[in-house]
Design a protein around this nucleic acid. Structure first.
Length: 154
DNA sequence: GCCAACGTTGGC
DNA sequence: GCCAACGTTGGC
């Protein structure tokens, strides 16, 4: 059984359209610099897991589609690159602090599912992304929540 | 652009 | 180990 996740990205940085245009519609999910989110990337996400692609800092913010994990956690090399916006000199290549996964586009929704709609959907009251102040950029999603979200589209 | 909520840092 | 200060996230 796959596990379910939600991955946040600012579309001005990397949107679902950018993923659609990427080679093999696949990208590395780099730049996560939060320990709780890192732990999910490093320890929990498995090949075949599915994730919602969430547009944060967008108008409107919301879920844009679905991606699949195609490579499990491995060191985020952007932390070692001084030219990268994600550079972290404290991450030691011999014992990396930060990790990433690879994800491939499964589907872009025909419309963005706005956060506001998620918030008033029965069954999503406890979904992390609908909770105020939930800043975590990699979030677990329950199977019931996963289905409830998809029922808004399909 | 504002600002509340949150995570991290660092002095003690 | 506490906690105030600071920086960041992200909705609005």
């Amino acid at each position: 059984m796959p596990s379910y996740w939600l991955l946040k990205s600012e579309p001005s940085v990397f949107s679902i359209d950018d993923l659609r245009a990427a080679p093999s519609q696949t990208t590395s999910w780099e730049g996560v610099r939060n320990y709780q989110a890192r732990n999910f990337l490093r320890d929990a996400m498995r090949v075949g897991d599915l994730a919602f692609f969430y547009h944060s800092n967008a108008a409107p913010p919301g879920i844009a589609g679905v991606v699949e994990v195609t490579r499990a956690g491995y060191p985020d090399h952007t932390a070692f690159d001084p030219a990268s916006r994600y550079y972290d000199p404290r991450s030691d290549p011999a014992q990396p602090t930060w990790f990433m996964v690879d994800v491939k586009l499964v589907r872009a929704f025909p419309r963005i599912l706005p956060l506001e709609e998620l918030k008033r959907t029965p069954g999503l009251e406890n979904m992390l992304v609908t909770r105020r102040g939930a800043r975590l950029s990699v979030q677990p999603v329950t199977e019931a929540e996963w289905r409830a979200v998809l029922s808004l589209i399909d």
